[in-house]
Write a protein that binds this DNA or RNA. Structure first.
Length: 223
DNA sequence: GCGACAG
DNA sequence: ATCTTGTCGC
């Protein structure tokens, strides 16, 4: 995994206009078909924010296909971009990339947030996927854009997330009697594969195991 | 002008 | 994300 890692002194957009230009430049690099191997090293990354210190804390994990933890990493970085809907990556990616840089190569990465289900089809899952040239899946806990009908009550049920006529993701019931999650392509996976892998790694929980583990580590650390 | 709005 | 009490459920 090679990094174009925005460290403390690397270029990073200063405002929303510059961030938007970067998204529009990078979005063409997103690959929406399956370009992945059978995932043996599955990553998850999650971010928390410390208001007092104005820093973001990231945790990244690597699991084997049985869900066993192989490696983990923690990182933090100063806050360099506010939370603006549609620009989450500019707030969270610097710390996330630092944590991910510590891990060995991944075959797949689950990202806490949307991928293509984004106003410019370039959410944080796409952003990390393109920067790392890694297959990524966006799994968000709530909607950013798009309309949908409620998926059926049984685990595995899903309905398309639509922006006009375009399918930008899927609303997936990973667990009974629990709100669905929003799954979208990050990079180098098809939507069908993203749904299948999300269900496979959720294993009866609402969120995929790598995301849950990263979240737990991140909380235990600074968040 | 008024809502909606990942984390 | 974070702020926050009780409350329901395994």
């Amino acid at each position: 995994m090679t990094l174009a890692c925005p460290g403390q002194s690397q270029p990073w957009p200063e405002d929303v206009a510059a961030a938007r230009r970067l998204q529009e430049a990078l979005r063409a690099r997103v690959v929406c078909v399956d370009r992945l191997v059978s995932p043996m090293r599955i990553g998850g990354v999650d971010i928390h924010y410390d208001r007092r210190r104005r820093r973001v804390f990231a945790a990244a994990v690597r699991l084997d296909p049985t869900g066993e933890l192989q490696a983990s990493a923690l990182a933090s970085a100063p806050l360099r971009f506010p939370y603006v809907p549609g620009y989450l990556a500019f707030r969270e990616a610097p710390a996330a990339l630092e944590a991910l840089a510590v891990l060995e190569s991944l075959d797949l990465l689950f990202v806490d947030g949307h991928g293509r289900a984004h106003p410019r089809r370039f959410g944080i899952a796409c952003h990390l996927g393109v920067l790392l040239d890694l297959p990524t899946i966006g799994v968000a806990k709530s909607r950013l854009i798009g309309r949908f009908t409620e998926p059926g009550p049984e685990p595995g049920a899903w309905s398309p997330l639509l922006d006009g006529d375009e399918v930008i993701g899927a609303v997936v019931r990973t667990r009974a009697r629990t709100r669905p999650v929003f799954v979208s392509i990050g990079h180098r996976v098809s939507l069908a594969t993203a749904i299948r892998l999300t269900l496979a790694f959720a294993r009866g929980f609402r969120l995929p195991e790598p995301t849950r583990l990263a979240d737990r580590l991140s909380r235990a650390h600074g968040g």
